[in-house]
Amino acid sequence: MAEEEVKLTVTIDGIPVEVAPGTTILNAARQIGGDIVPPAMCYYSTLEGSGGKCRTCLVKVSKGSEKDPRPMPKLVASCRTTVMDGMEVQNISSPEVLDARKSVVEFLLINHPLDCPVCDQAGECKLQDLSYEHGVAQTQFEFRKRTFEPIDIGDKIQLHMNRCILCYRCVYVANQLTDGREHGILGRGDHAEISTYIHKGLNNDFIGNVIDVCPVGALTDKTFRFKNRVWFTKPVDAHRDCPTCSGKVTLWYKGAEVLRVTGRKDEYGEVKEFICNTCRFETKKTADWILEEPTPVDHESVISANHYYTFNPPAVIEESKKLQEANEEQLARTERLK
């Protein structure tokens, strides 16, 4: 006899959903999808133990459960709070939550250098999206921002500590995916920083995934550094036979050249199948990959600017032998005049 599955009913912004016990409010909201999903900067579904640090996913629980209908006294982090039967949650329908989120964004931006024009993450940065959607245009902070001396952590990964929001995702990646973590958070409070203890390089296999999980531009691909802006490159899904990882990646093309290889991100910007360093850094030729299709990009995203959804966009001008010959003749004539 199969064990009967217990399902809890939880209502998020008036939409009821049935979820398994032990599900967090955030994941219950993701099962519904749409606007009511709280944003998350530190929670990462594939990393165990992540979440609870950035406070952007705060929601209001207006009814604790069927048995104890009292509301929770404070806003709770939805990535860490599990659902109870009959729970009622308010996210975007509560002005209190929206107000709190605004303050959280302001807090996250206090020490952020806001150097988006220079940053390679701009265009796919979660903090950029978050502050665009929930933030305010002004800051009350009028002191000098905290800055760190730049440190070198190897030839593959670039660290910009000033941009970090201390979400700990990269620490979990190093713990859970690689054979030994070489970096971590040093210092406390305002001085806390991501660093390797005595300046060492990050060289473990799978360590490249810290680039993908970083919600801001603190950890970026050094092989892609300043090569191009994200929105000028075209993402294409591809795979290859890789002995160490799944080999399913997104290639970022500029013309016929692969500028960057990343893992495939879902709608919440999370990589489900992590890729190894060989896939990410070593194989940057089209010949190494079997192309599938252009990555679907949200049409509101800047990355979709001027991109076609087919591999080969139809030609704008018909190719004409006669015209090409005439043009060549013309060119030869004008070349003489120079």
């Binding site: 988006c116 024009p117 220079v118 701009a122 550094r225 300043f226 090569k227 191009n228 802006r229 929105w231 000028f232 800047v302 600017a305 001027n306």
Partner: peptide
């Protein structure tokens, strides 16, 4: 100029190109 590419992105005629360097 920091070669952020926003001018090229906004350009309706696609007249601007740039190469960034460190």
């Amino acid at each position: 100029c920091t070669a952020c590419g926003l001018c090229a992105l906004s350009c309706p005629a696609e007249a601007i190109t740039m190469v960034a360097a460190e």
